[in-house]
Computed example of a mutant assay.
Amino acid sequence: MSVSGTPAPATSPVSPALAALRAAGESSDADLVAEFLAPDIVFHSPLTARLRFEGKEEVVALHRDIFAVLDDLTTTEPLVLGDTGSFSFHARVRGVELEAMNLVRCNGKEQIVDYKVFVRPLPGLVTLFATLPPRVSARRRGRLTGALVASLARPLAFALRTADLFAPRFL
Protein backbone atom coordinates (compact mmCIF):
# COMPACT_ATOMS: atom_id res chain seq x y z
CA MET A 1 0.00 0.00 0.00
CA SER A 2 1.59 3.24 -1.07
CA VAL A 3 0.93 6.58 0.55
CA SER A 4 0.57 9.48 -1.83
CA GLY A 5 0.20 13.14 -1.25
CA THR A 6 2.04 16.41 -1.47
CA PRO A 7 5.79 15.86 -1.47
CA ALA A 8 7.84 17.46 1.27
CA PRO A 9 9.33 20.85 0.49
CA ALA A 10 12.81 20.69 -1.02
CA THR A 11 14.14 22.48 2.07
CA SER A 12 13.08 19.68 4.43
CA PRO A 13 16.15 18.04 6.01
CA VAL A 14 14.20 14.80 6.21
CA SER A 15 13.43 14.13 2.54
CA PRO A 16 16.95 13.15 1.37
CA ALA A 17 17.49 11.02 4.48
CA LEU A 18 14.20 9.17 3.98
CA ALA A 19 14.94 8.61 0.30
CA ALA A 20 18.32 7.12 1.20
CA LEU A 21 16.86 5.00 4.00
CA ARG A 22 14.17 3.61 1.68
CA ALA A 23 16.73 2.88 -1.05
CA ALA A 24 19.03 1.21 1.48
CA GLY A 25 16.20 -1.00 2.72
CA GLU A 26 15.05 -2.04 -0.72
CA SER A 27 18.63 -2.88 -1.76
CA SER A 28 19.74 -4.24 1.67
CA ASP A 29 22.66 -1.79 1.65
CA ALA A 30 23.73 -0.80 5.16
CA ASP A 31 26.52 1.41 3.80
CA LEU A 32 23.90 3.58 2.11
CA VAL A 33 22.21 4.03 5.50
CA ALA A 34 25.53 5.27 6.91
CA GLU A 35 25.58 8.26 4.59
CA PHE A 36 22.58 9.84 6.32
CA LEU A 37 23.20 9.01 9.98
CA ALA A 38 24.40 11.64 12.43
CA PRO A 39 27.44 10.62 14.49
CA ASP A 40 25.25 10.68 17.63
CA ILE A 41 22.30 8.75 16.11
CA VAL A 42 20.01 6.92 18.53
CA PHE A 43 18.09 3.88 17.24
CA HIS A 44 15.32 2.75 19.60
CA SER A 45 14.79 -1.00 19.50
CA PRO A 46 11.32 -2.05 18.28
CA LEU A 47 11.61 -5.17 20.44
CA THR A 48 12.19 -3.63 23.87
CA ALA A 49 12.20 -0.18 25.45
CA ARG A 50 15.23 -1.29 27.47
CA LEU A 51 17.66 -1.11 24.55
CA ARG A 52 18.95 1.68 22.33
CA PHE A 53 21.69 1.51 19.73
CA GLU A 54 23.84 4.62 19.79
CA GLY A 55 26.38 5.94 17.34
CA LYS A 56 26.74 5.68 13.60
CA GLU A 57 28.95 2.56 13.58
CA GLU A 58 26.61 0.59 15.84
CA VAL A 59 23.48 1.56 13.88
CA VAL A 60 25.12 0.63 10.57
CA ALA A 61 26.18 -2.74 12.02
CA LEU A 62 22.62 -3.24 13.27
CA HIS A 63 21.30 -2.56 9.76
CA ARG A 64 23.63 -5.22 8.37
CA ASP A 65 21.99 -7.65 10.81
CA ILE A 66 18.50 -6.41 9.94
CA PHE A 67 19.06 -6.71 6.20
CA ALA A 68 20.47 -10.22 6.69
CA VAL A 69 17.19 -11.47 8.25
CA LEU A 70 14.60 -9.56 6.18
CA ASP A 71 13.54 -10.71 2.72
CA ASP A 72 11.56 -8.95 -0.02
CA LEU A 73 11.56 -5.56 1.68
CA THR A 74 9.41 -2.94 -0.05
CA THR A 75 8.67 0.58 1.15
CA THR A 76 5.90 3.14 0.78
CA GLU A 77 6.08 6.83 0.00
CA PRO A 78 7.19 8.89 3.02
CA LEU A 79 5.28 11.41 5.06
CA VAL A 80 7.21 14.46 6.26
CA LEU A 81 6.40 17.23 8.71
CA GLY A 82 9.16 19.61 9.73
CA ASP A 83 12.21 17.69 10.93
CA THR A 84 10.31 14.39 11.26
CA GLY A 85 9.39 11.83 8.63
CA SER A 86 8.06 8.32 8.37
CA PHE A 87 7.41 5.55 5.89
CA SER A 88 6.20 2.02 6.20
CA PHE A 89 7.71 -1.14 4.82
CA HIS A 90 6.66 -4.71 4.21
CA ALA A 91 9.05 -7.66 4.47
CA ARG A 92 9.32 -11.30 5.46
CA VAL A 93 11.43 -12.81 8.19
CA ARG A 94 11.80 -16.61 8.00
CA GLY A 95 8.84 -16.62 5.62
CA VAL A 96 6.54 -14.75 8.04
CA GLU A 97 5.19 -11.41 6.83
CA LEU A 98 5.61 -8.24 8.81
CA GLU A 99 4.76 -4.59 8.40
CA ALA A 100 6.69 -1.82 10.04
CA MET A 101 6.74 1.94 10.33
CA ASN A 102 10.00 3.89 10.47
CA LEU A 103 9.90 7.22 12.28
CA VAL A 104 12.96 9.44 12.01
CA ARG A 105 13.96 12.91 13.13
CA CYS A 106 16.69 14.78 11.30
CA ASN A 107 18.99 17.65 12.11
CA GLY A 108 19.62 20.64 9.84
CA LYS A 109 22.44 18.74 8.10
CA GLU A 110 19.97 16.18 6.62
CA GLN A 111 21.23 13.54 9.07
CA ILE A 112 19.04 11.16 11.05
CA VAL A 113 19.49 11.78 14.78
CA ASP A 114 16.59 9.75 16.20
CA TYR A 115 15.15 6.56 14.70
CA LYS A 116 12.25 4.37 15.84
CA VAL A 117 10.63 1.35 14.22
CA PHE A 118 7.19 -0.06 15.06
CA VAL A 119 6.37 -3.62 13.91
CA ARG A 120 3.15 -5.60 13.44
CA PRO A 121 1.40 -8.09 13.31
CA LEU A 122 2.30 -10.32 16.25
CA PRO A 123 3.54 -13.35 14.24
CA GLY A 124 5.95 -11.14 12.29
CA LEU A 125 7.10 -9.30 15.41
CA VAL A 126 7.81 -12.46 17.40
CA THR A 127 9.56 -14.13 14.47
CA LEU A 128 11.75 -11.05 14.20
CA PHE A 129 12.30 -11.28 17.97
CA ALA A 130 13.44 -14.90 17.62
CA THR A 131 15.73 -14.12 14.68
CA LEU A 132 17.35 -10.71 15.10
CA PRO A 133 18.42 -10.52 18.79
CA PRO A 134 20.41 -13.80 18.67
CA ARG A 135 22.29 -12.49 15.63
CA VAL A 136 22.94 -9.07 17.23
CA SER A 137 23.98 -10.70 20.53
CA ALA A 138 26.40 -13.02 18.75
CA ARG A 139 27.97 -10.06 16.93
CA ARG A 140 28.23 -7.87 20.02
CA ARG A 141 28.90 -10.39 22.79
CA GLY A 142 29.94 -13.67 21.16
CA ARG A 143 28.37 -16.83 19.77
CA LEU A 144 27.60 -18.33 23.19
CA THR A 145 25.56 -15.30 24.21
CA GLY A 146 23.80 -15.39 20.85
CA ALA A 147 22.89 -19.04 21.44
CA LEU A 148 21.59 -18.19 24.93
CA VAL A 149 19.42 -15.38 23.56
CA ALA A 150 18.08 -17.73 20.87
CA SER A 151 17.21 -20.37 23.47
CA LEU A 152 15.15 -17.78 25.34
CA ALA A 153 13.52 -16.05 22.35
CA ARG A 154 12.54 -18.97 20.11
CA PRO A 155 10.18 -20.81 22.51
CA LEU A 156 8.45 -17.53 23.35
CA ALA A 157 8.07 -16.72 19.66
CA PHE A 158 6.63 -20.19 19.00
CA ALA A 159 4.12 -19.79 21.85
CA LEU A 160 2.98 -16.36 20.67
CA ARG A 161 2.67 -17.44 17.01
CA THR A 162 0.59 -20.40 18.17
CA ALA A 163 -1.59 -18.18 20.35
CA ASP A 164 -2.10 -15.89 17.37
CA LEU A 165 -3.53 -18.83 15.42
CA PHE A 166 -6.16 -19.66 18.02
CA ALA A 167 -6.96 -16.53 20.06
CA PRO A 168 -8.70 -14.62 17.22
CA ARG A 169 -11.25 -17.45 16.95
CA PHE A 170 -12.47 -16.63 20.44
CA LEU A 171 -12.83 -12.88 19.96
Rank of each mutant, 00 (worst) to 15 (best):
L32D: 02
A34N: 07
A163I: 04
V3W: 14
A157I: 01
R105D: 04
T74G: 03
A167S: 08
P133V: 00
I66N: 01
V60M: 10
T11F: 10
A19E: 15
R50I: 00
A68P: 08
T76S: 15
H44P: 02
I112Y: 12
I41A: 08
A23H: 08
A30S: 10
V136P: 10
A10T: 13
G108Y: 13
A68Y: 07
V33Y: 00
V80C: 11
P121S: 06
K109F: 13
L18T: 00
G146T: 04
P123K: 01
L47M: 13
N102K: 01
G85N: 09
V149H: 09
H90F: 15
A100V: 00
D40Q: 12
E97N: 11
V136C: 11
P168N: 10
A17N: 08
A157Q: 03
K116I: 02
G82C: 11
H90P: 01
G85W: 04
P133K: 02
F166M: 09
A68I: 08
T74V: 12
V113I: 15
P16T: 07
P155S: 01
K116C: 02
V119K: 05
V126Q: 02
A8M: 08
R105E: 14
T6S: 14
V113E: 14
A159R: 03
T48Y: 01
I41K: 11
L171Y: 04
R64L: 09
V69H: 10
A159D: 00
R139E: 07
T84S: 12
A157S: 12
L81D: 13
P78M: 09
F170T: 10
V117N: 00
P9H: 15
P78E: 04
F129Y: 04
V93Y: 07
V93G: 05
R120E: 09
K109E: 15
A23F: 04
L171M: 05
P123M: 02
H90I: 10
V104P: 04
T84C: 15
R92I: 00
V117E: 14
A10I: 12
A61W: 08
V69I: 15
A30R: 13
L103K: 06
F89L: 14
V96K: 03
E110C: 14
V59M: 07
P121M: 05
P168I: 12
R94F: 09
P155M: 09
T6I: 15
D29H: 03
L156F: 06
L103T: 06
P133M: 02
V117C: 03
E35P: 04
R140A: 12
A100F: 07
S27H: 10
R140Q: 10
R141P: 00
V59D: 06
P168K: 09
L103N: 03
G95N: 07
